[in-house]
Design a protein around this nucleic acid. Structure first.
Length: 232
DNA sequence: GCCGTCAACTCGGGGG
DNA sequence: CCCCCGAGTTGACGGC
C-alpha cells in the first residue's frame, strides 16, 4: 500500500546528524554532510532531544535519487521565523531511506537500542528519528489492520442480517404451519413423528426428520450442504 | 482551499 | 527514575 511509498518527488532529505544521542544535552551543533551542506541544530526540546532548527528539505536539484544526502540546507531559516517555537520543515525520507526502513520493519517491528543506533547510522538519521518512524509505522500497520477488520465485520454483519431475516421468515412460516401441522411418518415405525423431531431444510424449505439422516435421503444429511459461511 | 499523508510532538502508562 | 511504547495530536507538505 501507500505506506511504503513516500510521495516525495523531488524533495529529498538533507539532514545528516549521525551519532547524536537523544540525551546528550549539547547545543548549537553544526555538521557537514557528504554534499558539503551544513546542518544547524540550535535548541533542544523538552525531552532533551534536539528538535528545532533542523533544515531538512530542499527541492532536489534534479539529480539522482539514489543519494539520500542530496539537497542543501539554508541556515537559520527557522530562527527568523516569528520568534516563537516552530517545527522544523517537514522531513521527507528519501526513497532509499524508506526502502531500508521498510526492509528492517519487515524483519522486525521493534528495534533494540543497538539496532536503532546501527540503522540510524546507516540511514544518516538520528536514532530518535528511526524510533519515531518505527512507532508511526506500527501505528499505521495497526490502523490498516483495524480498517480491514472493520470491513470484514461489516460484511459479516450484512450476511448475518440477511440470514436473520431468512430465519425470521422461516419462523413465520413454521408458525403458520402450526395451524395445520404436517404429518411426517417415521420410515421405521410408520408412525407420525413428534414435532420436536422435525426440522426445516433451509434450502428447499421442506419439513424433514432432523435426527435421522436416513429418513428422507438415505445417503445424505437431512439438509442440503450448507453454504460456506464466512470464516471467522 | 481542502484533504490526505506523515514526521514529530505530547502525554500517560508499563516494565526494569 | 529512566526508557520505551501506544494513543492522540500537530503542523508541513503535496496533490487535486
Amino acid at each position: 500500500m501507500g505506506a511504503t511509498s513516500p510521495s516525495a518527488s523531488g524533495l529529498e532529505l538533507t539532514m545528516a546528524v549521525p551519532g547524536l544521542s537523544s540525551s546528550s544535552g549539547s547545543e548549537g551543533f553544526v555538521c557537514n554532510n557528504n554534499n558539503n551542506n551544513t546542518i544547524n541544530i540550535s535548541s533542544i526540546n523538552g525531552n532533551g532531544n534536539m528538535m528545532r532548527d533542523l533544515d531538512m528539505n530542499q527541492p532536489a536539484s534534479g539529480g539522482e535519487e539514489e543519494d539520500f544526502l542530496m539537497g542543501s540546507v539554508e541556515e537559520d531559516e527557522e530562527e527568523r521565523g516569528a520568534g516563537g517555537p516552530h517545527r522544523p520543515k517537514k522531513l521527507r525520507l528519501s526513497k532509499e531511506q524508506s526502502r531500508l526502513l521498510e526492509e528492517s520493519f519487515r524483519l522486525n517491528h521493534t528495534l533494540s537500542p543497538k539496532q536503532k543506533e546501527a540503522l540510524a547510522i546507516k540511514l544518516k538519521l538520528r536514532p530518535r528519528q528511526v524510533e519515531v518512524w518505527f512507532q508511526n509505522r506500527r501505528a499505521r500497520t495497526k490502523l490498516k489492520h483495524t480498517e480491514m477488520e472493520c470491513e470484514y465485520l461489516k460484511r459479516c454483519f450484512g450476511s448475518l442480517t440477511e440470514e436473520n431475516r431468512r430465519l425470521q421468515r422461516e419462523v413465520e412460516e413454521l408458525r403458520a404451519m402450526r395451524v395445520a401441522p404436517p404429518t411426517v411418518l417415521s420410515p421405521h415405525t410408520r408412525q407420525p413423528l413428534p414435532a420436536s423431531a422435525l426440522s426445516m431444510c433451509p434450502r428447499c424449505e421442506r419439513i424433514t426428520a432432523a435426527a435421522s439422516p436416513r429418513i428422507t435421503r438415505p445417503t445424505a444429511s437431512p439438509f442440503h450442504p450448507r453454504r460456506p459461511s464466512p470464516a471467522f
